[in-house]
Design a protein around this nucleic acid. Structure first.
Length: 426
RNA sequence: GUGGGUGUAGCUCAGCUGGUAGAGCACUGGGUUGUGGUCUCAGGUGUCGCGGGUUCGAGCCCCGUCACUCACCCCA
């Protein structure tokens, strides 16, 4: 609101999910999670904040997420501790796994899924908020191309179940600790010879692969002759990647090889992928993920090769809008009661209570509106039936049951009302 | 962090070279003393984002400020 009569407004970069759209949001979260539930992933919740070092070590000291996008908090204890609102969930999920020794329970991989909000201190714009929601999945403790493929297929299934069609899957391999350093060196040598601004130059030294991702034409124009990671992959990485590709193809999941797909988090190794959609303003990713074989060791755990993804709920909603898809969100109210007079109000209030207890969603008019306004309220509630009753009806022991679709109205004995409605609403 | 755009009724917006603010929708009530979705009649609403300046006079011009928004950057 721009009006000063509103004393408070949602903090910058945040927004409220109101009833008009919350049904869609809930349905999207549910649809993104459904394939995971069918694939053996267990639900996990972790704290919204963690020790800041979990993220700086896990996500990476050189990433923008860590250097400038974290919301931090300081505890009040003597030896004050730095906490941060989670900018992503993978590090938290892995931390929880290690802390509870889930990886020692004997059956790897540990498959987990989550749904929750993440926080990044960024300048907001379309599809990018300071608090946003992700549904994510992690498969921890196994190195198997089938696991990478499984996750990509599950995400593809999730998007398709919502009716989304205009998204693409970008796929790449970032190599492993054998071959990536060699490539990194080669790329760095190349980048040093380019005409780049100071910040990009710095990035080239800390995390040269990310320069490939730069969208600016001034940078992209100079990358034509850059060495490509594909040409540096070791035999193991090549074979691994080829298997992922074959499994996806066999499952009928179309993807595009994108040798420049790097992604912004330091922990990725080998398989990386991104689901992109062009209905998100200048943002493109609706979801993304990859393999992170070294992350466990980075945060003090044993070697636990893992793979995971996160799908953006807000961005999926935008993608649906862009494709003109309206999800079938069931009406919240099936029956709406319109009493005429005080006596009728007591009777219908009782009827509504009984309907609710019997599992029928029912509502009634409040606040002493006139009948015209009350009928209007019934109409707007989306209910299929209205119950109208006044003294005349009650004297006959009936209420008027009106079908709000057709306009047909018939008297129904009051004591038969609940069973009649339950039958009609089957 | 950097740039552009926009702030007028609950919502979407109009408002000419400065002359004291409007439309549609929504809302409330009537036409129908007991019936919505169509029709029709009537009715109310504004610190024109905020603060300052110029002017006889500012929604309009100038300065500042805040908010929203889009893009860069980055990413879900």
């Amino acid at each position: 609101m721009s009006s000063s009569s509103q004393a408070f407004q949602a903090p910058r970069g945040t927004y409220d999910i109101l009833p008009a759209t919350s049904g869609t949001v809930l349905a999207v979260r549910e649809a993104l999670a459904a394939p995971l539930r069918r694939a053996g992933y267990g639900y996990i919740e972790t704290p919204v904040f963690e020790d800041v070092n979990l993220f700086s070590r896990g996500v990476g000291e050189s990433t923008d997420i860590v250097t400038k996008e974290m919301f931090t908090l300081t505890t009040r204890s003597e030896e004050s501790q730095q906490l941060a609102l989670r900018p992503e969930a993978t590090a938290s999920v892995l931390r929880a796994t290690l802390e509870a020794n889930l990886h020692r329970a004997g059956n790897l991989p540990v498959k987990l899924w989550y749904s929750g909000s993440q926080y990044r201190y960024e300048r907001p714009q379309k599809g990018r908020y300071r608090q946003f929601w992700q549904v994510g999945a992690e498969a921890i403790g196994a190195e198997d191309p089938a696991l990478d493929a499984e996750l990509i297929i599950l995400a593809d299934d999730a998007y398709r179940s919502l009716g989304l069609r205009n998204f693409r899957i970008l796929l790449n391999s970032l190599g492993d600790k054998q071959c990536r350093p060699v490539y990194r060196q080669a790329l760095q040598d190349y980048l040093r010879g380019l005409d780049l601004d100071e910040e990009t130059r710095r990035r080239a030294e800390i995390n040269p692969l990310r320069v490939l991702d730069d969208k600016r034409a001034s940078v992209q124009d100079q990358l034509g002759g850059a060495p490509m990671l594909v040409d540096f992959l070791c035999e193991e990485c090549k074979a691994y990647h080829e298997q992922v590709r074959e499994l996806l193809t066999a499952a009928g999941v179309a993807f595009e090889d994108d040798p420049k797909l790097v992604r912004g988090l330091d922990y990725y190794t080998r398989t990386t992928f991104e689901f992109v959609h062009d209905g998100l303003g200048s943002q493109s990713a609706v979801g993304g993920g990859g393999r992170y074989d070294g992350l466990s060791e980075m945060i003090g755990g044993p070697e636990l090769p893992s793979v995971g993804w996160a799908l953006g709920v807000d961005r999926t909603v935008l993608a649906l809008e862009a494709e003109g898809i309206t999800l079938d969100v069931p009406a919240v109210t099936d029956v709406f009661a319109v009493p005429l007079g005080e006596q009728a109000k007591r009777v219908l209030f009782g009827a509504v209570t009984q309907l609710r207890r019997d599992g029928v969603s029912a509502d009634l008019v409040f606040g002493g509106k006139g009948i015209k306004a009350a009928m209007k309220a019934a109409d707007r509630s989306g209910a299929r039936y209205a119950i109208v009753a006044g003294e005349r009806d009650l004297a006959d022991g009936v209420v008027q049951l009106k079908d709000l679709g057709s306009g047909d109205q018939t008297p129904v004995a009051l004591d038969a009302l609940v069973t009649t409605l339950k039958e009609k609403l089957q």
